[in-house]
Design a protein around this nucleic acid. Sequence first.
DNA 1: TAACAATATTTGATATATCAAATAAAATAG
DNA 2: CTATTTTATTTGATATATCAAATATTGTTA
Lengths: 142, 142
Amino acid sequence: MDKLNDIIFYNIEKAIKTYRMFAMKRIRDNNYKITTDQWLIIKSILENPDITQQEIAKNVFKDNASVTRIIELMVKSNYVTREENASDRRKSNLKVTKEGEAIIENVNDLVIENRKIALKGITQEELNITSSTLKKIIANCN
Amino acid sequence: MDKLNDIIFYNIEKAIKTYRMFAMKRIRDNNYKITTDQWLIIKSILENPDITQQEIAKNVFKDNASVTRIIELMVKSNYVTREENASDRRKSNLKVTKEGEAIIENVNDLVIENRKIALKGITQEELNITSSTLKKIIANCN
DNA sequence: TAACAATATTTGATATATCAAATAAAATAG
DNA sequence: CTATTTTATTTGATATATCAAATATTGTTA
């Protein structure tokens, strides 16, 4: 236990999992039917309407296959629609529905609040160093 | 993209995923048939022979159900055996096989090397602050 | 233009994550 | 000691992760 706690990668994993569970629980408790990843993906589409699935995959750091399936579910949930892309028929145009926009809007405050709670007591300086450390790890592993 | 990069949780997630892929690729490239989680679980059993699955789940930060299934696979791979626990028949005694011990031994150097590569150029001070930040996040989300 | 290579997405197979419910055994209250 | 509660694990259902292979389309080259 103590050994594990000294390993930075263990703490990274624990932190993101704890945060994810915390965020999901609060979203669920408010009766929103959406996951944090679905939320992120819809945000990506809203911010960049011409985005492809491949670009989404890079953005949210997921496999193309995962993105295909997550979007499939979001189409079923009526948050997103697919339309044929005229200029490249391998791709499809993703559009966020009214329903999708609404849930993003609604969940937005909650997400901001979640982040604030999770970062309570952490200084900007500490955040900067943490970010820079994480970015170094990312660079080192590429 | 730039926005996302400013969100600490995005970087935490990206860092651990990048590291995991990096580590798994190196393990696979060396023809070891084991995942990093299986490795961690076997280590847990070796370091604490009386450990229960529930304790393992806490250690490696997984669901009980996931641990059940991961151990099932490790039994199939002949890395671990289950025996009935005489004093409490709900539990089973987990034992690491010779084969399991061998692969842990073999992969160990690789794991240490992976960590070293991933942390190159990061000072002890930076690591300490990062660890403490992550621990604060973990505490805030509980 | 026909053959080939490259690209975007999907599908299949398998592993893992998550929650809820089921099972089985142990602990405890009455 | 029996009934009830608690605990440890398993199972079911569904979502996601991952790699490889399949599909479909586009781009390129001879």
